[in-house]
Simulated assay, not measured.
Amino acid sequence: MTREEKATVIQDLTATLADNTTIYLADISGLNALQTTNLRRACFKANVSLSVVKNTLLAKAMEASDKDFGELPELLKGNTSMMLSEVANAPAKVIQGFRKKSAKPVLKGAYIEETVYVGDHLIDALSDIKSKEEMIGEIVGLLQSPAKNVISALKSSGGKIAGIIKTLSER
């Protein structure tokens, strides 16, 4: 690979890092062709982009990026695959699901919404992270529940003051 090609790859990786807020680094070495194909299919179904990257080029792209990747450049040893997703827990769930059949992939680290996670022991915690949409749904549900209680109390009593007070006192 020539210097110009390397510079182009670094620019592309820097742009990719800038455009994504969920970046997982994993080791998929040791997987055979069939297992790698199955992993790629699982990633595609979960809307996760999987690509194998050269460690030195990714380290330079991280250095050139505006984001603070903390300890992640130090983890770039051996085989490294980059998993990108819009949903924070999607790559972790793909890794967990795939590890039911195989010991790989192993999570090296992750960058999620300006937070750096290092180590494979965090895979369970990362898979439990709720997406932005899930959090909004929970908040809306919590905000709606008191209003639903009042409305159901009003409907159940037929609108009579004594019935409303009785229903509310029971709750």
Rank of each mutant, 00 (worst) to 15 (best):
I164W: 00
T37P: 01
D128Q: 15
T36V: 09
Y117Q: 07
D19A: 10
I161G: 00
Q11K: 15
A42W: 08
S51T: 15
L122P: 03
S85L: 07
G109M: 10
A7L: 14
L57I: 06
T22E: 12
G158I: 12
G158L: 08
L75Y: 07
S157L: 00
S85G: 05
K6Q: 14
I112H: 05
M1P: 06
Q96N: 02
R3L: 14
E4M: 10
T21G: 01
L75P: 05
S51K: 15
K60N: 07
A125H: 12
K60H: 04
A153T: 12
K77V: 15
V48H: 03
N47W: 01
L143K: 08
V106L: 13
L84P: 01
T80C: 11
L72R: 10
I23G: 03
D12Q: 12
S102N: 15
I165N: 03
S85F: 08
L34K: 13
I164A: 06
L76S: 08
G158P: 05
G70Q: 10
G137V: 06
S152W: 00
D19M: 01
V116K: 08
V140C: 01
T115N: 14
G78Q: 13
M62Y: 08
K166D: 06
I164R: 01
E133F: 01
S131H: 08
Y24A: 03
K6W: 00
A90P: 05
N20E: 04
Q144N: 07
S85W: 00
N79Q: 15
K132F: 11
K54C: 05
E71M: 13
V48L: 09
T115H: 13
F69T: 07
S85P: 00
I136L: 08
G119V: 13
Y24M: 03
Y24F: 09
L75R: 14
A110Y: 04
N38W: 00
Y111S: 05
L122T: 08
K45W: 08
T22Q: 09
S127N: 07
F44L: 11
G70K: 13
D120E: 12
I136V: 12
T115Y: 02
G137R: 10
K130Q: 13
G119E: 10
L75Q: 15
D124Q: 14
K67L: 01
N38I: 08
Q144A: 11
A18Q: 01
R41Y: 01
I95N: 05
F98Q: 06
V106Y: 05
N20Y: 04
R171Y: 07
A7K: 13
A88N: 11
I164Q: 04
R171A: 14
Q96T: 07
V94K: 02
S169V: 13
L154A: 02
E63N: 12
K132R: 15
D19N: 02
K160S: 06
I95H: 01
D27K: 00
T167C: 07
A125C: 02
M83N: 04
S169R: 15
A162H: 09
E138Q: 14
Y117R: 09
I161A: 11
I151E: 06
S157G: 15
D120L: 01
Q35G: 05
T8V: 10
I95L: 04
I23R: 00
G109R: 11
L25C: 03
S152M: 07
K101T: 11
Q35A: 14
A59V: 08
A46F: 09
